[in-house]
Design a binder for these strands. Sequence first.
DNA 1: GCCTTGACTGTTATGATATAACGTTAGATA
DNA 2: TATCTAACGTTATATCATAACAGTCAAGGC
Lengths: 165, 165
Amino acid sequence: MTEHARQGGFCCASHSGTANVQAILDLAEARAKDRRVRLTPVRRRTLEILLQAHGALGAYDVLERLAAEGFGTQPPVAYRALNFLVENGLAHRIRRLNAFTACAQPSEDHRAAFLICESCDSVTEAQAGAVNAALSAAADAAGFALDRATIEAVGLCRACQGAQA
Amino acid sequence: MTEHARQGGFCCASHSGTANVQAILDLAEARAKDRRVRLTPVRRRTLEILLQAHGALGAYDVLERLAAEGFGTQPPVAYRALNFLVENGLAHRIRRLNAFTACAQPSEDHRAAFLICESCDSVTEAQAGAVNAALSAAADAAGFALDRATIEAVGLCRACQGAQA
DNA sequence: GCCTTGACTGTTATGATATAACGTTAGATA
DNA sequence: TATCTAACGTTATATCATAACAGTCAAGGC
Ligand SMILES: [Zn+2]
Ligand SMILES: [Zn+2]
Ligand SMILES: [Zn+2]
Ligand SMILES: [Zn+2]
């Protein structure tokens, strides 16, 4: 699901180097230590899979890859690893796509918004400070104690606007 | 799914009168005429079911009620009616709950945000003008052509804050 | 009026997403 | 090493959603 064609060795800039991936994996290790949770092999590998993915991946996509590498073959294997990553701020769940994506800025305590392209299914993580502030205000006005929020925008990414849809 | 207990004849103020329900049904009729679409019996009844519901209803909940009243018994019956209502601004889909809810302000061209209570599963439709403005700005900054958005907040409603969670 | 046409309904069948429950394994702790 | 718990992998099942097709109905052209 939601995987776009690659062109040559790498599909795009954000996947053309391992430097960034490595940095995030290092950060994940550090955070796990910090929080006294374990970044086990399945969990780590799941994060790598998300980081290397083009766009968000469904749980069953992740599972397929894990199974091919000798990890478990059944859905809970993928769901557990993905939920771990989400709980620890290393991945996000994109509800509109029934999919997951690695967090692009795991070092920040950000509440992200996602920009989902209807044409190519790409998912971009946007800065959502202002959006969350506005949402907090709206929640306050309603007497609602806001914990967290899902903010997902649908439209056309820059690339697909040129090619239109 | 997501149905809370009722207490006596009616569960709460928003369901204690038919006046508002009737007004919305009338508005739905008018809008259908306007748009040259048909508010058929299943569709109308589906809207009524949502309006009378306590919180959001899953498609299969709606289906169960429809089937009991002599409409079709299979999932597409419910999904089609629900999709019609959503497309015509008479209902909203709550992705976090895999559920649907009648629009509380169908007369406005609003882009709604939803406040979902973790404790009682109630869903409140909040004014989201400012939130959408902020989201538009974030999308612009990313070169993203925003079409529409899903904004769902999770937390505690006013009533459940008192009773804590 | 009556026929054409497209929208609507209902069905069967299947696909896609997600979790419950349980026995086993492996890390941490003492 | 003994013990305890988190994590893993499995089976089984629950839940959500759509594809495809046949019969029905209502609006618009003649
Ligand atoms: Zn993130
Ligand atoms: Zn695109
Ligand atoms: Zn609404
Ligand atoms: Zn509540």
